[in-house]
Design a protein around this nucleic acid. Sequence first.
DNA 1: CATGAATGAGGATTCATTCAT
DNA 2: GATGAATGAATCCTCATTCAT
Lengths: 219, 219, 219, 219
Amino acid sequence: MGTKALRWERRPDERPQEILDAALTVFAERGYRNTRLEDVGEAAGVTKGAIYHYFANKEALLLRAIEQRSEEAFGRIEEIVRDKTAPVSTRLRLVVRRWFGSVTKERLAVVTLLLQGIAHEAPDAFRRWLVGGPTASMRLIATLVREGQERGEFRPDADADVAARLLVSGLLQQTVWQQYAESVPDAGVEQERLVDSALELFLHSLRPSGRSGALRLKR
Amino acid sequence: MGTKALRWERRPDERPQEILDAALTVFAERGYRNTRLEDVGEAAGVTKGAIYHYFANKEALLLRAIEQRSEEAFGRIEEIVRDKTAPVSTRLRLVVRRWFGSVTKERLAVVTLLLQGIAHEAPDAFRRWLVGGPTASMRLIATLVREGQERGEFRPDADADVAARLLVSGLLQQTVWQQYAESVPDAGVEQERLVDSALELFLHSLRPSGRSGALRLKR
Amino acid sequence: MGTKALRWERRPDERPQEILDAALTVFAERGYRNTRLEDVGEAAGVTKGAIYHYFANKEALLLRAIEQRSEEAFGRIEEIVRDKTAPVSTRLRLVVRRWFGSVTKERLAVVTLLLQGIAHEAPDAFRRWLVGGPTASMRLIATLVREGQERGEFRPDADADVAARLLVSGLLQQTVWQQYAESVPDAGVEQERLVDSALELFLHSLRPSGRSGALRLKR
Amino acid sequence: MGTKALRWERRPDERPQEILDAALTVFAERGYRNTRLEDVGEAAGVTKGAIYHYFANKEALLLRAIEQRSEEAFGRIEEIVRDKTAPVSTRLRLVVRRWFGSVTKERLAVVTLLLQGIAHEAPDAFRRWLVGGPTASMRLIATLVREGQERGEFRPDADADVAARLLVSGLLQQTVWQQYAESVPDAGVEQERLVDSALELFLHSLRPSGRSGALRLKR
DNA sequence: CATGAATGAGGATTCATTCAT
DNA sequence: GATGAATGAATCCTCATTCAT
């Protein structure tokens, strides 16, 4: 009873969010199918029954969890991109750092879930994410690259699409694999170094061949 | 009846392999947990019971399916790497093309399964693959890059580890995502172009710059 | 509907006990292996799923059913045995009557289950019962017999161990076989007569003979 | 092939018997339901398929195994009983020794199977055995006892039926429990001593009260 | 709102039985 | 006759979902 009382101090309006957070974490940890609603409940500090007050069913829970977080994942960056005064390389750095620079536990969970836990459980959600997230990002980066090429900042013969793709999916994948760093020797690299080096390499791969590029890494 | 007759024309000694192939395909398509043994049986042209003649249980089936195929996935390439007469860039091209050049339906299935289907279902197998496959490949490529740096073929200030990582995981991920190309507009690029451009960009990112040493990464 | 309503009148806290009782009965009736959890559920007025709320699995159910009942089966009798003021024969009568005098439906079920239903299904439980139940009883009776021999109440040349064994296992077996009395002509004897006569014969077999010492058993 | 050749040296006409023997043993060891036909096959040196050449199905196998052996179990003793010249006690001794004196591995298997493995698997066979075996034996012994009572050899107030029952079922049960002697401390008594002492006690329990009986144990 | 007992469909697994070889 | 691959019914067990309290 004492315990129960304690639980009640949390505002009920936070419940749904708590459940979503818990779900995200647990799904990412154990996989969607391997997670019982009871597990989610436990992680959220409620019983499984309570979940049904806020979500129609397990799949709805998954969908909402993804939806909510995957939006923030590849969020507001339009301004950065639109600011044509800055050199493309600078804008690229900003964008990529915004996306991959700091990976909180929560964001890692979403990405993991989306990248390896969902394709078969919620194919539509997965596709939607693919379109709205990675693919959009890749397209945006490709656009920036092309702008750089037009401006003469990047070499014109580079394959902008493939460059963008490799950068984004490489970084995504690596970010997820970091989690296995302990058990897989050599799998891990610091996220900071990962992003910095990735950007450096990326920009170098676009640098005009002969003359020296304008590489300045100040951050 | 006709069906039954047909079935008997296949030699029983091929059964295990047929089942493994079927399992791989179906697992990759629908996900391990979403696949009933009966589905595998159906795909292999037998009933679920028959599967138990050859495999102890569902997990053993999964494990064997992975094991068998993932071996061939990142196979013999030592010779290429050891051949110090050729320039490093040439050897890198050979190695990467060997791995990602032609992706058969079967290989695609394994990779898909491994990349997004089993991290939670068979964590050990997943880790083993990570170690034996991608990580080993990345290490190998990183080694080659360093060799190129020592030889002066590549610029010395590039981050070999990150470069290798991005290349391998980027290509892997893209290869898997190809499968969603139809439903995700713009997601797809021909595998050939993907690999060629990736290599071109990769090598360009390592090319010595006109000026040298503008960038120093910790480590 | 009516049935459903009825079901809710029973208090949920009695469920586990109801299930145990049902299990005991059904197991004894049809045998452990021949009983589906669904049968137990039916007998207890719940569905199989409900059983899993209270018991981890079928074996745990069996074990608990045995455990609970077999405890009471050969219960507290120490006092009787210790009371050295009464003649041994009196104490023996009390003890045996306590054990075999009144056999309720439930106790019969346990004994049946233990005697012919589970030696192969739960060998450990069976052995534990053998040790804690029959064997302990036999030992206790043998001890009493020896006491009687020392006191001169019984003839000293009787084999106390075998006497105890025959009495206990004979009574047990007969008790179980009573159940087949209808279909096996002549198999049955009233339990009352069985116990009374058994005691009479038992005590008579230990009574000092006129002449003494005609027989010496090794040991 | 060499192995196969060897197997063929056994005469095929012995097959059924070999299978029956194997079945009996394995059934008694592991229980009927816990035994797969493959196990029986293995024990008999054939494959499960072969069993179906000789027996319609698993139950038929069980039935035949029981039938064959349970006949010999309580076999020819009529002559002994009919020989009215010998004292009843002598005839009783002969009969009981014939039944329980030497228990071969095979006979133990039958008894075990019948006593604790079968009641639920083949109730009819079990009942038939109960009637033809133990019950018949008990009846026969009871008859002998009554004869002894009429002749004045035994005390007339003893309960012949119960005496016979206890003797037979006690001995049966003990014989089966011998098998657990190792794991159940104190459970075991040598079969020889068991039978001798049982007889001694049995006869003593029937001895006329006052005067001394004619107990002679020569064997 | 929350609980947790109860339900029942779904799927893994076992194994008696069949049958082509 | 014998083999052993294949079948499929049977049953344990899990867990999403419902609902009385």
